[in-house]
């Protein structure tokens, strides 16, 4: 707890895929996902919140990259109307769906 209060939480967080790829994304973007929002909540004492680093054991790098792309797409279109759908490669969509379900986005 003490450490989180001493250093103000950074604007960026690191997401790590199961195969070791690291994605540094803006905190506000990562918080689009409900699960990540709770993991990274500075008021909680989760390890992820303290270190600003979330390891996602069941998401591989390819999927996580797409997930990060979605985070930015979502953030960019936050207040827009009639947003065009993001392009999702068909071969990825089932895995992405599982990831989306896990991350609660």
């Amino acid at each position: 707890m003490a450490t989180t209060q001493q250093q103000p939480s950074s604007d960026y967080v690191t997401l790590v895929s199961c195969d070791g790829y690291e994605f540094v994304v803006r905190r506000s973007c990562a918080c689009v996902a409900g699960a990540l929002r709770r993991m990274l909540d500075p008021n909680s004492s989760f390890n992820e919140a303290v270190t600003g680093r979330a390891v996602l054991e069941n998401i591989n790098g390819i999927v996580l990259e797409k997930v990060c792309e979605y985070f930015y797409y979502n953030e960019k279109n936050k207040d827009a109307r009639d947003v065009p759908d993001m392009d999702i490669p068909p071969e990825l969509c089932l895995e992405l769906l599982m990831a989306a379900d896990y991350l609660n986005t």
Binding site: Y73, N74, K78, M86, P90, L97, T105
Partner: peptide
């Protein structure tokens, strides 16, 4: 709705398409 659809909905639609 304002903003983008959520990722699950996007993926479900894509799965249904394919």
């Amino acid at each position: 709705s304002l903003g983008a659809k959520n990722l699950q909905e996007l993926c479900v639609e894509k799965v249904a398409d394919n």
